[in-house]
Structures are given as structure tokens and as C-alpha cells.
Amino acid sequence: MDKVMRLASESGVVLFSKSSCCLCYAVKILFQDLGVTPAVHEIDQDPKGREIERAAGIYK
């Protein structure tokens, strides 16, 4: 999917996350503690979130 490729190319670190996911939250904190500022894209807030999940290979 073009959107996934575009988002991935815009930043050195991209995190595809769900806002209600506790593991996603832990990864965000880990990056923060390491001094890394990833581009966070909340797929559950995106109308095309399901398509992004499939394109990025994210499975439930």
C-alpha cells in the first residue's frame, strides 16, 4: 500500500500502533526512554486502518 510506504519513508523509525494496546504503549515508552522519537501512526484512528494492517503485515 502506498500510504504505508510513504509513512515508512518519512521517518527513520515508524511505529504502527493501536491506541488501546498496552504492548504498543510499552514500546512507545521504551523508545522514549532510549531517546528515540518514532513517527507514531495510530491505525485504529485511521479510516483505512484495516488496509494498513494488511499492507504492513500486522496481524491480530
Rank of each mutant, 00 (worst) to 15 (best):
A55V: 05
D44P: 06
K3M: 04
V36S: 05
V4Y: 04
A56T: 04
A26I: 00
L15N: 01
V27E: 11
D2P: 13
M5T: 14
S9R: 13
E53C: 13
R50C: 00
R54F: 10
Q45H: 13
E10H: 09
S11N: 14
V4Q: 06
M1Q: 04
Q32A: 12
L15T: 03
A39F: 11
G35I: 02
D44Y: 10
T37H: 07
Q45N: 11
D2W: 02
K28W: 02
S20H: 13
M1R: 00
K48E: 12
M5Q: 15
C24D: 10
F31Q: 01
L23A: 11
D44T: 07
F31I: 01
M5L: 14
V36Q: 03
L34C: 11
R6F: 01
A8L: 13
S19H: 09
C21F: 10
G49S: 05
V36E: 04
L15M: 11
V36I: 15
E10C: 11
A26T: 06
A39L: 15
E42D: 12
V27Q: 10
G12F: 01
V36Y: 04
T37S: 11
Y59G: 01
G57I: 04
A8E: 15
E51W: 00
D46R: 05
K3W: 01
Y59W: 03
D46K: 00
Y25N: 12
F31V: 02
Y25W: 12
H41N: 04
S19T: 15
V14Q: 06
V4I: 10
P47T: 07
Y25M: 11
I58D: 07
A8K: 14
S20T: 13
E53K: 10
V4L: 06
D44K: 06
D46I: 01
K60S: 14
A26K: 14
Q45K: 13
Y59N: 06
L7N: 07
E10G: 12
Q32T: 01
R54D: 14
V4F: 05
I52K: 01
C22W: 10
I43T: 02
L15P: 03
L23K: 09
V27L: 13
L7A: 08
G49L: 03
G49M: 04
V13P: 00
G35P: 06
I43Q: 01
F31K: 01
E42M: 09
L15K: 01
A39R: 14
L15E: 05
D2N: 15
K60N: 14
C21L: 08
V13W: 02
Q45W: 12
E53M: 14
A26H: 05
R54Q: 14
L23D: 09
L23P: 00
C24N: 11
E42G: 01
V4R: 04
S17G: 06
Y59K: 05
S19D: 09
Q45Y: 12
M1L: 06
Q45G: 03
T37R: 09
D33I: 02
Q32I: 00
I29E: 12
K48S: 10
G35F: 07
P38N: 05
L34N: 05
E53D: 02
L7F: 10
G57Q: 05
F31Y: 15
K18T: 12
L23F: 14
R6D: 13
T37N: 09
M5N: 14
L34H: 07
M5F: 09
A55L: 09
S9G: 14
Q32D: 11
A26V: 02
F16Q: 06
S17V: 03
A55D: 15
K60H: 15
K3P: 00
S17N: 13
L7G: 04
Q32P: 00
P38A: 02
K18D: 12
